[in-house]
Amino acid sequence: MKYIDNAVTLDLQEESCTGCGMCVTVCPRGVFVIEAGKACIVDRDLCIECGACEKNCPSGAVTVRAGVGCANAILKGMTGGDVSCGCCDSSSGKSSCC
């Protein structure tokens, strides 16, 4: 299922890419393939900005501004709280969200 086009912050610097293939392995949306020894982005709009690629790229070729695609978290951030779902917020004890 595809979401909104032309929105994500995913970036791939081919010069730094060593073709190790970790991004292909960890991406849950099939954004990358390896072609001619380098990583390629198949469809940028599939990206959900989870950050797995950046975390596991040993050469730093892939970057993305990772974050939670959660409206509730953003609403909280807008009203002055932390930009967090609230469901992962164990310090507040009980509660909410996804």
Partner: peptide, 13 residues
């Protein structure tokens, strides 16, 4: 959107 594995932060914003 927060319950899915198909939305990106940038897209939701």
């Amino acid at each position: 959107t927060g319950a899915t594995p198909v939305t990106s932060l940038s897209g939701v914003k």
